Amino acid sequence: MNAVYEHLTLLLTEKFEVPAPEIRPDATLTDLDLDSLAVAELFLTLQEHWDVPLEDDSTTATLTLTEVTDRITTMRLAD
């Protein structure tokens, strides 16, 4: 497991109170019952932590945790 995914799961369990058994790589943010405000807050928190720009749009909630992790990892490697 990479550091980005580990940080994402930690945020989801601690800050957003998502039950740990629900967190899996193929779960979407919608599957985890995050509303649009929670998704925006999650992305802002991730942007600040990893110092990468993340787009929050209407399709963001349908991203899987793997896709979110990949976006952050790609942005970090592009720097």
Rank of each mutant, 00 (worst) to 15 (best):
L63G: 00
D31H: 14
A3G: 01
T62Y: 10
A27S: 15
Q47R: 03
E22D: 15
R24S: 12
L65S: 12
L37C: 03
D35Y: 06
E6T: 15
D70S: 08
V18M: 05
T66H: 08
H7L: 08
L65R: 07
T64K: 08
D35C: 12
D56T: 08
L65Q: 10
L54A: 09
I23S: 09
P21K: 13
D79S: 02
A20P: 03
T13R: 14
V4P: 02
D35W: 08
F16M: 09
I72S: 01
V4E: 04
N2R: 03
T66N: 10
L29Q: 06
D35I: 02
T59G: 15
A61D: 11
R76M: 14
P53E: 09
T69H: 09
I72W: 05
H7N: 13
D31M: 08
D51M: 05
R76E: 07
H49T: 04
L44T: 08
A3N: 11
T30G: 02
L54H: 09
L29N: 06
A38L: 09
L65H: 13
E41V: 04
A61G: 15
L37G: 05
K15C: 05
A78M: 06
D56K: 01
D79H: 12
V52P: 01
L44D: 01
A78T: 07
E67G: 01
I23Q: 11
W50Y: 12
S36H: 02
V52Y: 01
E67S: 09
F43H: 06
A3Y: 03
V4C: 04
L29F: 13
D70K: 06
L42K: 03
N2E: 07
L44S: 05
W50P: 01
L63E: 10
D33K: 15
E14I: 06
D70I: 03
T13M: 13
E48W: 02
M1D: 09
E14S: 13
P19D: 12
H49N: 01
N2A: 02
A78K: 09
T62L: 14
T28F: 04
T66K: 04
K15M: 05
L12V: 08
L63T: 02
D35F: 11
L37T: 11
L54N: 02
Y5C: 00
E14V: 04
D70F: 00
V39S: 07
T9R: 11
Q47I: 00
E48V: 01
V52I: 04
T9W: 08
L32V: 10
H49V: 05
D31V: 10
T28I: 05
L42Y: 05
R24A: 13
L46M: 13
A61Y: 06
W50I: 00
A78F: 00
E55A: 12
L12D: 05
T30C: 10
L37P: 04
E17H: 13
V39W: 04
V4R: 01
D57L: 12
E17V: 10
D70V: 09
N2D: 12
P19H: 08
L12I: 07
D31K: 08
E41I: 01
V52L: 03
R76T: 11
L63V: 00
L10G: 11
T62R: 15
L63H: 08
L10A: 15
L34T: 05
A61M: 07
V68H: 04
V68Q: 11
W50C: 00
M1C: 08
A40L: 12
L29T: 04
E55H: 15
D70H: 10
T62D: 15
D31C: 07
